[in-house]
Design a protein around this nucleic acid. Structure first.
Lengths: 249, 249
DNA sequence: CTTCATTTGTTCGTATGTATC
DNA sequence: CGATACATACGAACAAATGAA
């Protein structure tokens, strides 16, 4: 075949690793927002001057970063850009750490604790004096589940996201949610179940909410620490227990 | 050829989004560590029973998550799984936020401050009574640059990563570094340069180090806050200035 | 230094499943 | 139901980079 075609592919040497970058640039240039449609694959082939396969690989890469969202048979739209990629990567890293699974999980738990303590002032600022029926309801559900010996992962996650929602820092909220996901994804792999501590954890959520709404900073910090205490105790007793002290208050 | 036909892979029903998962599973099953070689593309085609295009898309997806690292002409190895994807996604999100660039940056800065304060106890624990020539040297370089009116991004980043290195929480270190990268990537887009504050920032780093090594928690927190003060002031004066108070101490 | 095999990078063509109208 | 548009998948060929003989 005519292998000498395309005399004008002058820029084809700079395309080392930039097809995905081009698409991102295109999104920015057109001012596309999450949910807006992206040009179809053939259109992208033409606009970027690359083949279908390259476009597909680039789109796949962007999809894994949640920058675009592909809908089969329909098209591709700009994604919501949540922190799912972070979760996926860190879960895999935690699992990959083989013998260091405990250490990886401990790092996540320590960071969750640190973040919750760090955001304490802002959380209290937003909840002081108010009362949230949604959060109270979640606490009640957690207590019910705990007393029946069941876990309450969905309610737990919801509680923490709802608690942080009012502070107006989307990034912080997503980060806490992401760590929660990592946490709950890695935890069952360790095969540690603590039926006794479930009730403690459920009650701790109630304490957290009560402290936040009463504006008591000291109590809030104490409740946060108590909330993680069973986990940290478990991690330090099973593992080598290194520097998990956080006796902040 | 022992093409065992794989009678039960269902042709193409389950392979919606699982090729990448298969590769991850393969990494785990073979106990591969970062730096270890991954089977070549043709080998993966055979082992997973999919075409090379599919393998390539999956590898590309994993590469964007830093789970694998592809080296042209050489092969593919297990990646270091740093937080580059997080940085990339959030930088893009920050830029995409159009009019909310300031808000996005403010969220990042607030989180940096929160994280630094949350890790304060652990940092001090590790630096108390010791003295780090590396960190002292970095502070000196920053001061020199600041007095000459130059910026010192490389030294700044290095300082924060070195400061957090001894606490033994890799995740925290990577996260702080990631936020620093986001921060420094978004900041210049706002076109704000504050030559007067450069010297303040440089001195703040010296205060942070001194407080950490002397074990003075109060001074450390104050130095951290002072370190971010020029930035937060800038963000709240230019922006709408919403709830950036963090008068923790 | 050159040659060569290996491996990834890119492209084309084709067939198929799926959603929308 | 059919028609159209789109994403999904496959396979073959060639280009480019790397490393070793």
């Amino acid at each position: 075949m005519d292998s000498t075609r395309d005399p004008d592919i002058g820029e084809s040497r700079m395309r080392r690793s930039t097809t995905a970058e081009e698409i991102k640039r295109l999104i920015l240039k057109n001012g596309l927002r999450p949910g807006d449609a992206i040009p179809t694959e053939p259109e992208l082939c033409e606009k970027l001057g690359v083949s279908r396969s390259s476009v597909r690989e680039a789109i796949r890469a962007l999809a894994t970063l949640d920058i675009v969202e592909v809908r089969h048979g329909h098209g591709t739209v700009v994604g919501e850009m949540r922190l799912k990629p972070l979760v996926e990567t860190l879960v895999f890293r935690g699992v990959l750490s083989a013998g260091d699974e405990l250490a990886a999980l401990r790092e996540v738990v320590e960071l969750r604790l640190a973040l919750d303590l760090a955001l304490a002032d802002q959380v209290i600022e937003q909840h002081r004096g108010k009362s949230s029926p949604v959060l109270a309801n979640l606490v009640q559900q957690m207590l019910t589940h705990a007393e029946a010996g069941r876990s309450f992962l969905a309610e737990d996650r919801r509680f923490h996201t709802e608690l942080l929602a009012p502070i107006g820092n989307q990034l912080a909220g997503q980060l806490v949610a992401a760590f929660w996901d990592i946490h709950s994804a890695v935890l069952p792999r360790l095969g540690l179940a603590l039926p006794a501590d479930i009730l403690l954890t459920a009650k701790a959520h109630g304490d957290i909410l009560a402290a936040a709404e009463s504006g008591d900073t000291q109590a809030y910090r104490a409740a946060i620490i108590a909330h993680y205490e069973p986990l940290l105790r478990m991690l330090s007793s099973t593992g080598k227990g290194h520097g998990a002290e956080q006796t902040q208050a």
